[in-house]
Amino acid sequence: MGKKFLVCSFAAVFCFITMLFTVDAKAAYPEKTIEFVVHSPAGGGSDLFSRAVASILEKEGIVKQKIQVVNRDGGSGTTALNYMHDKAGDAHVVMQFTTGPLSALLRGSSKLKLEDLTFISMMCMDPNLAFTRVESPYNDMKSLIEYAKKNPDKISVAIGTVGGSEHISAHRVGRASGAQLNLVGFGGGGAASVAILGGHVDVGFGNVNEQMGQIEAKKIKPLGVMSPQRISAMPNVLTMQEQGINAVYVQPRGFWAPKNFPDYALQFWEDAFAKLVKTKAFQDVLKTSYAVENFMKHTEAKAFVTDYLKVLKVDVDELGVYKKK
């Protein structure tokens, strides 16, 4: 029984290996399942975005192979970056990037450097906003900041994780206006929303997408948007700059690949994402998540993110968030 199986399995293994070597790699890229790496655990915003993109790419026939979303969560993006470091040269690994992995690059907490990554494309920007509950006496950011300037630390701000996007937004508002705000870490967007709805905290920062339901139900009102322009979903809400606060923050989303990603693969993915952006299904995803399309190819995307990181570095340094020596 055992011997027979052993012979059979050896034969099978042999056949399999010969097959692997005879297939010409470039002939039909991609020739096997593609990994979509996500830095957040299954179910987070980034994860769902990746899963939606993967499913559209498959359904529209843009990518003929299966796409498997793999979650390499941990260390606020560090684990995923380390994974990309180990996958150098692999033509079948693509990773979505957004604020988390970008700040991890700044912190230098992973083995990977920005130069090690092959940029594929920028996809979209998530707009952020400042908000409070409807019962609050403040109707815009201007009046809130005026109060805060006279009463240092009286205005409490719910931020998510330390050094996260809400923290950066609040910090930029504070820096630009000179108001002293009482920033309270809530660990995540959900807990922060509850604290604001319950009136325990004065103001919160967050993704437009997450707050839209509350805004439409008139439980929460927007105080100002952090984008450079107003958002089409809420044309009446002023930007911070329009309210005299020189603070801007947007959350980029795009894809990159490991070091030494082959040129044919880069070409393939640039085209694939360019086609993806034109599909109705993807436009629907953008619309339902209030994200603004901002498609850029390889070179542009790289330049954009490099600049973005330069600006972000100033904030991260000022915040004194832990940095590896």
Partner: peptide, 24 residues
């Protein structure tokens, strides 16, 4: 409230958005 009370409902909330519903 449209707010997830647990990890599992957080995933559902995300899913609801993908289907074009506005939880809240």
């Amino acid at each position: 409230l449209g707010i997830p009370g647990s990890g599992a409902t957080a995933v559902m909330l995300g899913a609801l958005m993908l289907y074009g519903l506005k939880p809240g």
